[in-house]
Design a protein around this nucleic acid. Sequence first.
RNA 1: GGCCCCUUCGUCUAGCCUGGCCUAGGACGUAGCCCUCUCAAGGCUAAAACACGGGUUCGAAUCCCGUAGGGGCUACCA
Length: 471
Amino acid sequence: MTVRTRFAPSPTGSLHVGGARTAIFNWLFARHAGGQFILRIEDTDRTRSTEESIQEITDAMEWLGLDWDEGPFRQSDRLDIYQKIANELLESGHAYKCYVTSEELEEKRKEAQSKGDVLRYKREWAKLNEAPDEPYVIRLQTPDEGTIEVQDSLRGTVTFDAVEVDDFVILKRDGFPTYNFAVVVDDATMNITHVIRGDDHLINTPRQVLIYNALSYDIPKMAHVSMILGADNKRLSKRHGATSVVAYKDKGYLPEAIINFLSRLGWSHGDQEIFTKTELIEKFTLDNVGKSAAVFNEEKVEWLNSWYIKNEPPEKIAGLVLPLLKEKGLDVELDEKLIKIVIELSQRAKTLNDIADMIGYFYAEEIKYDEKAANKFLTPEILPILQDITDRLSQLSDFNMDEMHKIFDQVMEERELKLGKIAQPVRVALTGGTVSPGIFEVMDILGKDEVIKRLNSAISVIPDEEVSNET
RNA sequence: GGCCCCUUCGUCUAGCCUGGCCUAGGACGUAGCCCUCUCAAGGCUAAAACACGGGUUCGAAUCCCGUAGGGGCUACCA
């Protein structure tokens, strides 16, 4: 039997990193086994499901490179199936119609709560079948005693007391199935062999086991993975800042980094930290999945992202940065210059956006000097040195880094200065600030004409001697 | 409250199943040093954990029991 896994998000928002991790595990498991990965949209909550969410989720999955073999199926398209099966359950006596309204139940629930009890609906009220014209829900008739066992690949056998499980609704008043019912029907009819999902569903599983049994379906292998928590150890939510996959995309993260990071949350392979997708597929097994909850570590994703920015081919990074530059209104091409810049800036960037933010001076028509930097380094004392360097550089016929180095060495020697004394003013002249890649690299990227032009501009703004102290 | 799950450095984790090799390893982050034209990157080093209490055993992070703490669920949400 070929392995079939699924990812079944509910479209009530964009793809969450927790959901993404579940998707990744399922995808990895299927790919590792050479099986299929199915995408199913659980949109049975009519009030919360939205069309935009579906789009956002599939977009995010595509961006991550999690391709699915079947789907996206929508539960809302399968209503007739659930209704048919619910009716079969009705006929076989496993389920019954219930006319009690949610309002009535809510009241009972409050009443029980005030007494310190928990309301467990076990068909103890009338109105079950008494009003054939009234709207009703269908409930599963659950056992009153005994235990229900759940076999979990990660946690072993988990035993629940049958009294804990009430006669839960499988088909709502509006004809939509409830989560537990739809999941079972879908997983069974879609021939899902392995269900890998969040820990929060473990408690639902005995209910689902009951449905599987009532329908005489085979129960797939279950694995409940622990949840991802925020830094405060609480379930990860919007309060923790960026939690959606798109938010990371927008911040300039690479899908490789997100996949790598999320895979390592709850799963490991010895001491290895960096994994290509191929390696993940090759190495991923449930055996190496841990049982405890994992805190989402912002610094570590950032580190991974900066690692990928440094190690992915610069052409690729340049291609990804290009649209960001266009957005900034820069007239840039994906050419050799951009690639050279990316090689330098990627050493200093944590995100693609960082590169876009740092790149400005390479393409600026006019350099804007940082005030502090200019005051400190573009001074009358430095003027002769800048002039000297400019003269010598302009005489270079072959403007390469070796030659530039020689010139700087000569100036250093003649004037008995350290490189830092010369490089900083030149840096300010060329970039406007005190932070940049190596000065020779910057000159190499800018090219002779631009370097000379910028040096001359800088020289022109340096006040003559200490006489005048304005402009 | 009830039920279920979980518990190794601040965080992600290795080790646990199949007790001794653990003086508990790696990574992020933090600190220091080196490199150095700035900023980074890189290299090296350091501080940092077996939740607690009982067993079992010659020997326990590893097995058992209890306690504490954390998380989840408790819907005609998923």
